[in-house]
Design a protein around this nucleic acid. Sequence first.
DNA 1: GTCTATATGAAGATAGAC
DNA 2: GTCTATCTTCATATAGAC
Lengths: 181, 181
Amino acid sequence: MAHGFNGTSIDQIAAQAGVSKPTIYSHFEGKEQLFVAIMNSICDNFENPFLGPDADTAELSTILIKIADNYTRSILQPGVVAMHRLFVAEAERFPELSRRYYEVGPLRVHQTLAAFFKNRMARGEIRDGDPLLLAQFFAAVVIAPMRTRRLFAVETDIDWDVLDRRNRETVALFLDGCVKR
Amino acid sequence: MAHGFNGTSIDQIAAQAGVSKPTIYSHFEGKEQLFVAIMNSICDNFENPFLGPDADTAELSTILIKIADNYTRSILQPGVVAMHRLFVAEAERFPELSRRYYEVGPLRVHQTLAAFFKNRMARGEIRDGDPLLLAQFFAAVVIAPMRTRRLFAVETDIDWDVLDRRNRETVALFLDGCVKR
DNA sequence: GTCTATATGAAGATAGAC
DNA sequence: GTCTATCTTCATATAGAC
């Protein structure tokens, strides 16, 4: 996470694990296999629980703001950003790994959101359409601007008050669009 | 671009440049300085021209779809994806570089879009609000879903017809929101 | 199963000739 | 200004003892 695949040596890993190099090589065929095992283990233990039990009953804009706040908070954690960076950086060398990360991470979030939106469509609160598309749309506006600045080291410290205010404006735009009526 | 900072050796660079290593070291203090010079040079020559002269006069949804199509096309080019990956991967080690990339890349796009939206606000076509926020919102929904899948090696080949159809739905959502009326 | 010690190669960087 | 040849360090990986 800290220095990437090429930037991390087996020596460092052995030292931090408190074992010697041959011990590592007795458990894993090589550096690449170790990397695959680590990253797969991360994917195994991935969880993204940010939809509470009141998700289907609460007032729409209220729950969307809550979702947005939770989502931004979880995704901007330093560890999550580092993981994102690593999977993106190694997507050419380990494409199956990055794909798997996408599936247990972003995609699963989108699917959860899609189920939520589908429910709201059935209740007639929002226009009918592809729930997954809507979920990706929502995830994009909530996450992308902040994450982009974070990934490029533009914003190191985050003002959560500003972010929450921003999320309210984002949700309003999401619900009503920008066309004047 | 192909193998990252640590994955590329001075030997390779020298070979590909058709010179010997000492020649490189006579021009640059070391590998890091060479990297900085290269990446800065990339930022110097950065251009993002995707707003035509008809941007301020054309019908709103039409021009937005056109912008979206151009934007997705330019940002999904292999070279642009590779650059994105590299700046993200090295954002911890070379934060000033990544920040600069953000400023000449995404930020400049957002500012161009913001000027466009401000104009449309003045004409009363869209609701008043922060034009830059709206620009980031628009850029996010147009770019983020596709780019995320691309960055994680989920989508290697792109079906441009599907993408264009998707952009039309995205623009419609952007303009009208998702609330049923 | 884990260690010390080592093989082997490649990396970044430089001395000194032309 | 550029080269050949080389230095030094550190990387991945392993042989063989305990």
